[in-house]
Design a protein around this nucleic acid. Sequence first.
DNA 1: ATAATAAAAGATATTTTTATCTTTTATTCG
DNA 2: CGAATAAAAGATAAAAATATCTTTTATTAT
Lengths: 143, 143
Amino acid sequence: MFSKTCEYAIRAMIFIAQKSKNGNKVGIKEIAKGVDSPEHYIAKILQELGKKGLLLSLKGPNGGFYLDKETLEYSLADIVKVVDGDKLFTGCGLGLKQCSETHPCPIHHEFKSLRRGIQTMLEKAKLGEFTEELGKRLTFLKR
Amino acid sequence: MFSKTCEYAIRAMIFIAQKSKNGNKVGIKEIAKGVDSPEHYIAKILQELGKKGLLLSLKGPNGGFYLDKETLEYSLADIVKVVDGDKLFTGCGLGLKQCSETHPCPIHHEFKSLRRGIQTMLEKAKLGEFTEELGKRLTFLKR
DNA sequence: ATAATAAAAGATATTTTTATCTTTTATTCG
DNA sequence: CGAATAAAAGATAAAAATATCTTTTATTAT
């Protein structure tokens, strides 16, 4: 469904959301450990998300990655769009470039509703909303 | 959603289904052209599907790939399982290995229903059922 | 200012996926 | 049988995704 890069990205962002609840920041090492991802690799991904405005960071001592009230409102769909692009939401299930309503692949219509379901679910899933269950250890971000 | 390999596989299988309606066989060149895929690459994929019993073929003059009454009953889900494995149907959306009902990732439950929807749709889609609309040029397998 | 810290950026390496090319084997037909 | 045909199989290549390592820049606290 998602690229591995995107899986890391989502897990890291949810992790940061949880850790930055009280205005705290979290370092890349802790993030990498917390979501079980390669440190330098996830760093790259977060840099990109930062450039796109989905995430904040500060260098130096006491620095790290964090989310504020505004960025906590971003959804998983926003992350997916930045990392994997929007082919999951708009592309043809069979990889045809010109697949459309008027030139559909054989599974175009069935796929359309599936895609819509995926997109709706990801758009509803705001970063700020995962922290509670994570805090209670009802959900997990690694292994 | 699917690997590129799997997209080719599905397109080729639907193409063969259409072409082998009247007991005909279709050569690899015609298949490659018909679904706009690299010839040797799709050949490899079809060989694997053949080994797994989803597809029949015959060498020599008048040879080629074809489907019979039985193999036309296979669904897109069967193809996906052979080519991409079943991680789309059973794997964790965030890539966790131990994600389960008792150790769920934050989107486990939402994903479960999406996955089920995808699987159901693919299982319902039997190879034999695409030929009519393709014949009427209401649907397409390339570009 | 300076030293310490931590992210940003750049360069390189590895692995997997995708694709191509060549040789071999099976089948048909004259 | 022998020539032609077409898939099967094996070897190699190219591209993309994933991962690591090193250097640079920004920030903080002393």
